[in-house]
Design a protein around this nucleic acid. Structure first.
Lengths: 212, 212, 212, 212
DNA sequence: GATGAATGAGTTTTCATTCAT
DNA sequence: GATGAATGAAAACTCATTCAT
């Protein structure tokens, strides 16, 4: 029944199966959007349907887990880059990493603003990411590398926006996001900034349910 | 050619029902994403399920019709604004209109890059929009209102991106997109532009199926 | 696909399909208990699975409908017998009818005291039956045909009890309930009644959730 | 022969686990009916699922074991009460014990007349119980404490019936069965018995599969 | 042309049972 | 012998689509 190396150890392989499932799910969601079925994910992972539900009792749990993995990775990147001397380069690297990560997770935009955000773990992870991004942003701001009216949450939001700008080109020009990242950075470091309308976003706004 | 006055000579009821359905579907997709069911759409429109299928033989046809209506509206806006003297203001107005239209169509981001793009009518409508946007953009470029390395397709793509940037704030701050539009405009009109990596997008890139 | 006379009229046959389903479900539950699957019921009725759910959105709704049909039938019997002159005979006939009806609904005992009782329609139907039975019982009581400390709810409860007493014999002696009905009637009309412990049941007790 | 001391010489753990499981299962079935899952039973017993299946290879085996324990207990009670002088009191005590035991086993009525009866051990245990009950009943009959046309199998059947009569009141009036036991005893000892229709039940009738 | 009942493939989810550790 | 991860058949339920009225 199993297409991979059959009859592997079980206890030890639970971790492996979990990763298998997350990878398969990320792929499936990228290809078919959120409509990807749990059954297909199981098949892609080379596991039985029941196993998916043992690891993630609900489709939403699986989605949350994917988001968490993505968010945690980004937060770690931000944390690492806080040490860098060149704050402008650090910010660019953070954004580049983030946008690329999103590109692998094309379901991202369907998930943002949907109930999975209500999983408190995801909310917390978003908040953490915004905090980490704010540290990075503050340093760049203080060094005059970017304008003063932009905060970390702005930067996090821009990741999704830049990704989305280039998304329709993904198939033919997978690197097109670089163009729009540069454009955004030009906006961020403009020497003659316009007065931005609307107050800067607060983290809580980001983590509040959109359906409320 | 025009969707709203399509196939003249038909009973007034049909035209009315068609509009009823498009409005209901737009609402439903905005609220529930692409998962909104044909049944719910029929109910919202106050019609029977069978009637939905008479007008749109397939859910995808309905989606395409919604996209077409949106795209046509934007194209008309662009065409109208080509007459304006203040090319910078015209561009800003076009983008503002486009972003607001997208906000009412939350399913947009789920649709972009999915099979409905394969409907040739939609492809054509996107191409038309890019042409109209290019006219608008060219004028602004020539007047020095924006940098020289941006074309109409860039502008069209930015609509989706700016919308997406603000999307997570939609519930709590529905006007937040204005902030990111201004930021993008700052990038577009920067006096010290960086060299944008990657070639500018061509229309065909946009209308090529992403799954291909 | 359909094993019966295919492609029948639809509007007119909705009533027929409903009856078909209730009959099939009654049969299926009698044979397999509450575990009978919606799929099997559909098959027995010669209809598609979806049709079962159109008529009864939930398995519990189907169960409730069956119970309602049974309860209504019994209430009508009780109402009719209230006119009878021979109150003892009337009571016996009511009980005989009730027990026989239960025998066709072997799932009855699994249903009693389970969540379907919480469907308010079922609760109301039970209450109605108890009222009707009380009228019948009161007349018998007043004529001295039965002892004075028995009320209508007692009689309704006894239906289930007498049915259950004979249930294990159903396969080999389908009429065995008559033996236990007579025994119960002997207890009801005893000339030397013992003082019954516990207060007589009130209708509300019967319709209160057992899981509370 | 006796279930609780089965296969002596095994590890103490196994005996303990077996009892743990039977208790947990009895509880679970009482609460959720036969739908109670093996998983929940394992959890209630504080054991792993695998252990449940080591003791009872099948859910049905577990059910049979529960029934056996119940039946054996009743048979022992009957045997003990055969020694009593007051045969009427002995019969009442036997019935009271039996009904109370049934009350703790709400799944009982779902089991009666279902395939588990096909386990020959259960069949044998039922036969044993009927024999023991007949001894008790015969003594009462001979002493004139009850009417002459009632046998032990009648009495066993009445246990289930009286339990079922009061079952809908279990939640609000857990002692209501006493009322119906007394009513039944009045019927059993009536001084003016009616001729009971149908022949008295034989043991074999009881233990024949109902689905056969 | 509108209606909504019927269809049945497809989805998520549960659970008895197996089996490597 | 105990454990609990994996399995996969089966269940309840959904929904796009068809078609008789």
């Amino acid at each position: 029944m199993n297409e991979t190396t059959a009859t592997p150890g079980q206890r030890a392989d639970m971790v492996r199966n979990r990763r298998l499932l997350l990878d398969a799910a990320t792929e499936a969601f990228a290809e078919h959007g959120l409509e990807a079925s749990m059954g297909e994910i199981a098949q892609r992972a080379g596991l039985a349907k029941g196993t998916v539900f043992r690891h993630f009792p609900t489709k939403e749990d699986l989605l949350s887990a994917i988001m968490l993995r993505l968010l945690d990775q980004l937060t770690r990147t931000a944390d690492r880059l806080c040490e860098a001397d060149d704050t402008a380069a650090a910010l660019r690297e953070f954004m580049a990493d983030g946008i690329e990560a999103l590109a692998a997770d094309r379901a991202f935009c369907e998930v943002i603003g949907r109930p999975s955000l209500q999983h408190s773990e995801v909310r917390d992870a978003i908040a953490d990411l915004c905090v980490a991004a704010e540290v990075l942003t503050a340093r760049a701001r203080e060094q005059g590398a970017i304008r003063g009216d932009i905060n970390g949450t702005d930067v996090v939001l821009l990741l999704g926006g830049i990704h989305q700008t280039a998304a329709p080109l993904l198939a033919t020009q997978p690197q097109a996001w670089r163009r729009y990242l540069e454009l955004a950075l030009d906006g961020l470091r403009t020497t003659s900034p316009s007065a931005l309308p609307h107050q800067p976003p607060l983290r809580p706004d980001l983590t509040t349910s959109v359906t409320g």
